[in-house]
Each structure stands twice: as structure tokens, then as C-alpha cells.
Amino acid sequence: MKLKTILAILFATVIVIFSLQNSEVTDVRFVFWKLSMSRVLIILGSFSVGVIVGILVSVKKKFVNTKKY
């Protein structure tokens, strides 16, 4: 396996373990919106959004680099 893959799996495992140990309910406030939810969902949701943004940026860079004018 590539080093990047091993590090990504290790990092994801650490995030999952960390989030499972922080399972209390907490309040989330954004502008006029307030929601009470588990920290597990907040942590894993934030991590998932970060992964998706990283993938989209990576795909965009590959697409722009392969596009010929």
C-alpha cells in the first residue's frame, strides 16, 4: 500500500475513535439556527465534509491540468 493510503486510513481511524469517545449531546448554533445533537455526528460530519471538499479540489486540479486549449 502507498504511504498516503496508510496515513489516510490511520487518520480516519483516529477520528472515529475520538468521535466515539465524545458522544455527549451538545448545542450547535449557526446564525439564527440552533440544534442539539451528538458530538459524534458533528465530528464525523465535519470530517466527511472536509474529505469531500478535498476530493473535489483534487479532481478540479486534475481536470484543469489535463484540459488543453
Rank of each mutant, 00 (worst) to 15 (best):
M1F: 13
E24L: 12
F11T: 02
F63V: 07
D27L: 04
F30A: 03
W33N: 01
T13D: 02
V14C: 07
N65Y: 05
S19E: 02
R29F: 07
W33C: 00
I17D: 02
K61G: 01
F18K: 03
K62N: 06
N65F: 06
L10S: 13
L10H: 01
A8M: 10
I9Y: 04
K2F: 10
M37C: 13
L41H: 10
F30R: 02
V40F: 13
M37Y: 11
T66A: 14
V25K: 15
F30Y: 13
K68S: 14
L20P: 11
V31C: 01
I17N: 00
K67F: 15
G54N: 05
V14N: 03
V51C: 05
N22T: 11
A12G: 15
G54P: 02
I52Q: 01
K60F: 15
I9W: 03
S58P: 05
K2T: 15
L20F: 15
G50T: 05
S23W: 00
V49E: 08
T5Y: 14
T26G: 10
S58T: 10
E24D: 14
R39S: 11
K34W: 06
M37R: 08
L56W: 02
K62V: 05
L20G: 14
V59N: 02
L20Q: 14
G54A: 01
L20V: 11
S23N: 12
V14T: 04
I55R: 00
T13L: 15
G45S: 03
W33A: 03
V31I: 08
V49R: 02
V64R: 06
I15Q: 04
L7H: 00
S48V: 09
L7S: 07
G45H: 04
S58G: 05
S23I: 01
N65I: 04
F30H: 06
K2W: 08
T5N: 15
N65M: 09
V64P: 14
N65E: 15
V59H: 01
S38V: 00
W33M: 07
E24H: 11
I52F: 09
L7E: 03
V57M: 10
T5S: 15
L41E: 06
A12H: 05
S48E: 09
L3V: 12
L44D: 12
L41A: 08
Y69F: 10
K4D: 13
F11R: 01
I52H: 00
A12Q: 10
S48K: 08
L20C: 13
Y69W: 08
K34Y: 09
V51Y: 08
S36Q: 12
W33S: 03
K60W: 15
N65V: 00
E24K: 14
L41C: 03
L20K: 12
N22V: 07
T26F: 09
L41F: 15
T66F: 09
W33E: 02
V14F: 09
K34C: 04
N22Y: 11
I15D: 01
D27F: 00
G45E: 01
F63M: 12
T13F: 13
A8C: 06
F30L: 13
L35I: 12
T66G: 10
K61F: 05
R39A: 10
K60Q: 11
